[in-house]
Write a protein that binds this DNA or RNA. Sequence first.
DNA 1: TGTACATCAGTGAACGCGCGTTCACTGATGTAC
DNA 2: TGTACATCAGTGAACGCGCGTTCACTGATGTAC
Lengths: 188, 188
Amino acid sequence: MRYSEDHKAKTHQRIIEEAALRFRRDGVGATGLQPLMKALGLTHGGFYAHFKSKDDLVETALQHAVQTLESSTAEVLHSAESPLPLFIQRYLSDLHRDNPGAGCPLPTMSAELGQRGEPSATTDAMVRNRLALIEQNLEGENAEDESVLMLSAMIGALLLSRSVKDPELSDRLLHTTRRLLIEKTQDQ
Amino acid sequence: MRYSEDHKAKTHQRIIEEAALRFRRDGVGATGLQPLMKALGLTHGGFYAHFKSKDDLVETALQHAVQTLESSTAEVLHSAESPLPLFIQRYLSDLHRDNPGAGCPLPTMSAELGQRGEPSATTDAMVRNRLALIEQNLEGENAEDESVLMLSAMIGALLLSRSVKDPELSDRLLHTTRRLLIEKTQDQ
DNA sequence: TGTACATCAGTGAACGCGCGTTCACTGATGTAC
DNA sequence: TGTACATCAGTGAACGCGCGTTCACTGATGTAC
């Protein structure tokens, strides 16, 4: 069968989006290409008309996730008067914790990507981007250093709050870190 | 062949230790039982004389790692006059970053364990233990909240510093977080 | 307008591979007599 | 002391399974004439 002109591009995009979701939610290693294609109503053979390999998809999906996150963050930054508290509020929200598939790839994917052979430079780019973003919205002379602490705390708190079984402990990790970091932005 | 009385117990322990190393260094999913047993000079069939399943080993190895870490931490706590800075120094050391197989399971394993079906209560126990440990060595009235921030920052910084490709960025993440957290303990 | 052909996204069987798990077996040593 | 037997940690072939990847094929539609 032959399809409309942009049909292939649409399928391509659908694969990327479904992969970006599954890689973050389930992990890269635990995401099979066969189930992924099936979920899109396709057969697995067709995958290689779109990507060179699974690793190719991993890199593409990661970059897609990064781009999506960054543009939604940019929106927050330009709309709010003091954007950093809002950014922290959203990053350490229950919604973000409960939907890893739609969120930041750092807490979910970076450990596995680091363990999987050569890591890509995408993680570096993302970390640098986040640090710059925080730093620019922090006042005070040691904003550069504080941004490192804040990013570390955000990622650690999100990771832990997702890994822990007890909902109360999870809430405590998430909400306490959130409150203290937001207070920090107001100290300055 | 029949072995000395404690032979089986020794083999059991060797499996646990090798697994605890590999699970943390390579990830649980990426660690095969066959290569693991082979590395110990054994064949894979014998594994099931020691453990009910891979999941059984995962839980056992995790608990072993936790126990080892906690006893080495206890040592630090009882030897030093002000133990918290030393604890942070060690947790966020280059040595710890460069040897995930011998270190804290939280940055390496917790994301994957959270993704793998039902998470065990061991993560909760570990988090609680670490929080209590930090809190007890922090002065000031909001030690309870500060301990959450510190633990999150430590785990996030270690995770990021291991995931990033550029050694300078890695050092910056690790060393800046370390310095700021140690300063925090002295503020109080 | 009607027919022959080219295109190519997607199909689905097949590939080798490593996984976790099972199981009949081995064989050195301890115990029973 | 010598012989028959029991033990059981470890062996290694085999199981079904899902993985990533390959490839000959399909068939609806566009293009050429």
